[in-house]
Nucleic acid binder design. Structure first.
Lengths: 208, 208
DNA sequence: GTCTATAAAGTGATAGAC
DNA sequence: GTCTATCACTTTATAGAC
C-alpha cells in the first residue's frame, strides 16, 4: 500500500522523478506534496526549499523533459527545413521521433501522459507557460508544413495541424500500455510505431 | 470576482449545470463543492443530499449528456450498419454529428471539454464507469469500421481508430473557442466543421 | 540542506434544527 | 428539501531548531 521509496539521485532529482509519476497518475491537483515527498523519500519541506512552490515544481517537471525534447525536434527540423526535396514524412519524423525516443523508457512514457493532461486542462497559466517557452517550436513546424502544403488555405492548414497534434498527443500518452510482442525487438517496435503515426499524420494533413 | 449565480431550474439541475462548467474549467479535483454550490446558488449540503457524494455527482454529469448523445449515435448507426452501399463517411457522420449538435450551445461545448479531461485522466474508476455504461457504443462502431476496411489487420484498425478518436475528442473540446464568422450561418458553420472532421477521419482511417 | 512543528485555510461529509 | 454548524482531515506553505 505504501508507495516504494526512490533513493537514487539528489533530493531535487528525486522530487522531480516522483512528481512526474504522480502527476501522470493523479493530476496536478490530485497529487499532494505529502504523497509526492513521501514517495520520493524526502522531507515535506524540501519541495518549497528547492522549488519555491508546488506550481514552480510543475513548471520544472515540464522543463526537465521539454527543453531536451524540443531542442532535438528543432535540430532535426533545421536539417530539412526549406530544402527542396524534403517531404511531409521528413518533417513529421522530426516532430515524432524525438518524442518516441523519450517514451522508450517508462519514466519518459509517463511524462507524455503528463503532457496530455496539460493539453486537456485548459488551465491558462500552464498554457501561457508552455506557449511562452515552447511556442516557437510549433511555429517553426507550422511554417514548414505551410511550405509543403501550399494548396491548403491557412484556416484549413491550422485545422489539420490541430487534429494531428491532438491525435499524436493522445497516442503518445498511451504508450505505457502498448505491449511489444516478445519476438519483436525494441528497435523494430519503435520503428513500426513511428511508421503508424507518420502514415496517419501524412494522410490527415495532405488528403484532398 | 464572485461567480454569477444560476437561478433557473430545480436544485438538482442547477447543481449539474454548475458542475459541468466548473469541472470543465478546473477539473474534478480542482473544483470544490463549495465553489460549485455557491456558483449554483444552492446550499453546500445539497450535493450530498441529492447525489450522495461528489463522485456520484461526477457520474451524473456524464450520464446527463452521454445517455442522449450515445443513443443518438447508435440510432444513426443502426440506419446504416451492414447496409451494402454505406460509406466510411456515413459511419463517421453518425459518430460525429450528434456530438457537433451537442456542442452547438455553450454548455454542451463545455461538456465536450469535461469529456476530453476524462479521456486524459487515466483514472481507473472513471474509465470503468464509462466503459461499463458506454463501451458498447464504441464496439458497435468498431464492428462497422472493420466491415468497411477489410484490408486492415485488427491491430492496424485499432491503431487508426485510437488515433481518430484522440483527434476528434481533442478537436471537440476546443469548440468553445472556434469563432464563427458573422457572415456564415450557424448551420453552415456546423456543416463545414463536420466536413473537416469527417474528411480528416476518412483519410486517417483509410490511407494505404 | 534537512528536519519538526505548526500556522492558516481548505476539503468532503454529516448531524440535527427548521 | 434546505439550512447552519461542525467534525475530522488534508492541503500548501513557513518559521525556526539543528
Amino acid at each position: 500500500m505504501t508507495p516504494p521509496v526512490n533513493t537514487s539521485g539528489s533530493t531535487k532529482e528525486r522530487i522531480l522523478a516522483a512528481a512526474e509519476v504522480l502527476f501522470a497518475q493523479r493530476g496536478f491537483d490530485g497529487a499532494s506534496l505529502r504523497q509526492l515527498t513521501s514517495s520520493a523519500g524526502v522531507n515535506l519541506a524540501a519541495v518549497n526549499y528547492h522549488f519555491g512552490s508546488k506550481e514552480k515544481l510543475v513548471e520544472q517537471v515540464f522543463r526537465r523533459r521539454l527543453d531536451a525534447l524540443n531542442a532535438r525536434r528543432l535540430t532535426a527540423l533545421a536539417k530539412i527545413a526549406g530544402v527542396e526535396n524534403t517531404t511531409l514524412e521528413d518533417v513529421l519524423a522530426a516532430y515524432i521521433r524525438p518524442a518516441l525516443d523519450l517514451s522508450h523508457d517508462d519514466s519518459g512514457a509517463l511524462f507524455m501522459r503528463v503532457l496530455a493532461r496539460a493539453f486537456a486542462e485548459h488551465d491558462d497559466t500552464l498554457r501561457q507557460f508552455l506557449s511562452e517557452n515552447y511556442g516557437h517550436v510549433m511555429r517553426q513546424f507550422t511554417t514548414e508544413f505551410a511550405r509543403l502544403l501550399p494548396q491548403l488555405s491557412k484556416p484549413e492548414l491550422y485545422w489539420r495541424i490541430d487534429l494531428v497534434t491532438g491525435a499524436l498527443t493522445h497516442a503518445m500518452s498511451g504508450f505505457g500500455m502498448i505491449q511489444r510482442k516478445s519476438d519483436v525487438s525494441e528497435h523494430t517496435h519503435r520503428e513500426q510505431t513511428a511508421q503508424h503515426l507518420i502514415g496517419f499524420a501524412v494522410a490527415g494533413l495532405s488528403h484532398p
